[in-house]
């Protein structure tokens, strides 16, 4: 599927579908799909990498089950460094890297690289906070039963943090919707590209407003799903 979408030349598509006689609803639908696709994949990737990082950040802290000050400090510094780079700059900085991996720096697949890299440190800190909310008593209880670090991570830290982690997924996805629009301005595809090239450059104000409304609905929808998912997990436990 990734190849199929990458194969579509975004500019060719836009000029053909959004020319003088462009069929606007079709273009909006397609751009929406692209945004959802980018956000979904980069959220997934950022959790695949960010979740383990969060666990390392928490457990290597002083007094925790894998205490290791050096690892904790180095990892913390790297995470902070990435978080301190504004996304729009990261996007440009990562162009050569993206080309290396994807072969191009424009289009939705290419956008997934900077989106994921920007989200990973964010997710690491977000999940770190979720895990730190767990009462130390639970970890102490597991330790008192003779649990090792891996058992504590797998059987205590992750399951106990799930309701909070799930809410974090919604926050991350919503952030990525915003970031994907920025990537869109640099030819990343999705609603950002649509709004910039047509709403702004071609003065198609209508397109601009439609994009805004679609984004609004998208964000509402993601938050609603996230809250519902989290509540579902929590209410099962009540």
């Amino acid at each position: 599927m990734i190849e199929a979408i990458a194969a579509i030349d975004i500019n060719a598509f836009l000029s053909s579908s959004l020319g003088e006689n462009a069929w606007i609803p079709g273009a909006v639908l397609f751009a929406t799909w692209e945004t959802i696709y980018m956000v979904f994949i980069s959220t997934t990737v950022s959790y695949i990498v960010g979740l383990p990082l969060a666990i390392i950040l928490v457990t290597t802290e002083e007094g925790h089950v894998l205490e290791n000050q050096r690892v904790n400090e180095v990892l913390g510094a790297i995470v902070n460094a990435f978080r301190s780079i504004p996304f729009i700059i990261l996007l440009i900085l990562l162009i050569p890297f993206t080309r290396l991996i994807v072969g191009t720096s424009i289009g939705t697949v290419a956008s997934i690289v900077p989106l994921s890299i920007a989200a990973i440190p964010f997710v690491a800190r977000l999940v770190e906070t979720s895990i730190k909310e767990i009462d130390w008593g639970l970890i102490e209880a597991a330790l008192s039963m003779g649990a090792n670090a891996w058992q504590i991570i797998r059987k205590v830290l992750i399951p106990e943090a799930v309701p909070s982690i799930v809410l974090g997924v919604a926050i991350t996805a919503i952030n990525l919707v915003g970031y994907s629009a920025m990537a869109g301005i640099l030819g990343g595809g999705g609603l950002g590209t649509l709004a910039y090239y047509h709403g702004y450059m071609r003065y198609q104000t209508g397109v601009m407003w439609i994009t805004v409304i679609v984004l609004l609905i998208l964000v509402q929808l993601i938050q609603m799903l996230g809250t519902r998912w989290s509540n579902q997990v929590v209410s099962k436990r009540r």
Partner: peptide
Amino acid sequence: LRQLRQKIGMIFQHFNLLSS
């Protein structure tokens, strides 16, 4: 130590049960 702890039970003021 882990082997020993498996043979020493412990109960707590705030119970420390897993909510999950």
